[in-house]
């Protein structure tokens, strides 16, 4: 469920791209500062987007940009977003989600790999859990629900994706933003649809893999894939219009919710991502283009 939120680089202004990178570095730095070096491995683009988005909503933001040298980029100094409660929050959320993702992998089978990563990240996660115990409880509760639905082999694709949608919805609106009730409602609706999109695009991307490993996938159960009779290419072709309908409707709702939120900065980056980057990703995944999601910026 990670690494699908990208900007569409060719359509981006250079200054916006620089800013995007600065936030990325900012989040990375926040992770190492708050949860320890090892958790840096968990960094995703998604967290970078959260940071940019939250900072855009945050009226009292003190984010500033400074140039730094870091381990990953020792030669050239790079601009980095600093003093930002938004990069800090996004960093913590990144670690929390990565932890639960590993846990999920552990339960699903890939034990050795997940276990190693979890040992490395354990301390970092414990620190985050102390900071956001309520949020962690909510996340773990909804993931339990998801796990039950997976075991039941649920055919209700809406219900299954709602579990992850609720998680992002809860994360999307931290108290420090001090939003009005109405903005909160819009931000939560954006988060809900973002979570749903993330879950479903990941599911569609993993179709082949899940068939191979005999794992649950909502698209397989919903549209009745039969491993003995169905051909994967034909199956994909058949369900593509429905999958597109759901995914693009999520994106449409994201942009509609965004239109109702008062945004103070970063508009160009956010709009690039929600209008083009995410649609590009959707089209790629629907067409079956496999790409490395986590190439560093």
């Amino acid at each position: 469920m990670f690494g699908y939120i990208h900007p569409l680089k060719p359509e981006m202004k250079v200054k916006d791209y620089e800013k995007f990178r600065a936030y990325y570095c900012g989040v990375c730095h926040s992770i190492s500062k708050r949860t320890g070096q090892s958790a840096r491995l968990a960094l995703t683009y998604d967290a970078c987007f959260y940071a940019i988005f939250l900072d855009a909503l945050y009226m009292d933001s003190e984010t500033s940009f400074e140039t730094f040298r870091c381990i990953r980029h020792p030669v050239n100094k790079r601009p980095m977003a600093v003093n930002s409660s938004c990069t800090d929050y996004a960093a913590d959320v990144n670690v929390i989600l990565a932890w639960y993702n590993l846990m999920d992998k552990y339960i699903d089978g890939d034990r050795a790999k997940a276990k190693t990563a979890m040992t490395v990240m354990k301390r970092g996660f414990e620190r985050c859990r102390k900071r956001y115990s309520k949020l962690c409880d909510q996340v773990s509760k909804r993931l339990d629900d998801l796990h039950h639905l997976e075991q039941e082999k649920s055919t209700n694709i809406d219900l299954v994706s709602e579990t992850f949608a609720d998680i992002i919805k809860n994360i999307a609106c931290p108290d420090f933003l001090n939003l009005t009730e109405q903005s909160k409602e819009a931000v939560q609706w954006l988060g809900y649809n973002l979570g749903k999109w993330l879950y479903l695009i990941d599911a569609f991307d993993d179709l082949e893999q899940d068939v191979e490993k005999k794992q649950y996938n909502p698209f397989l159960t919903r549209y009745g894939y039969n491993p003995d009779l169905s051909n994967m290419e034909e199956f994909k072709k058949e369900i593509r219009p429905q999958a597109e309908f759901i995914l693009v409707n999520c994106l449409d709702q994201i942009t509609k919710a965004y239109g109702l939120i008062d945004v103070t900065r970063n508009q160009e980056i956010i709009e690039n991502i929600i209008y083009m980057g995410m649609l590009n990703k959707t089209d790629q995944v629907l067409q079956g283009v496999k790409k490395n999601n986590e190439k560093s910026v």
Partner: peptide, 13 residues
């Protein structure tokens, strides 16, 4: 979905 695609297209997608 079409209106969304249209607005993406207008932005250069």
């Amino acid at each position: 979905t079409n209106t969304y695609r249209q607005s993406s297209h207008n932005r250069g997608y």
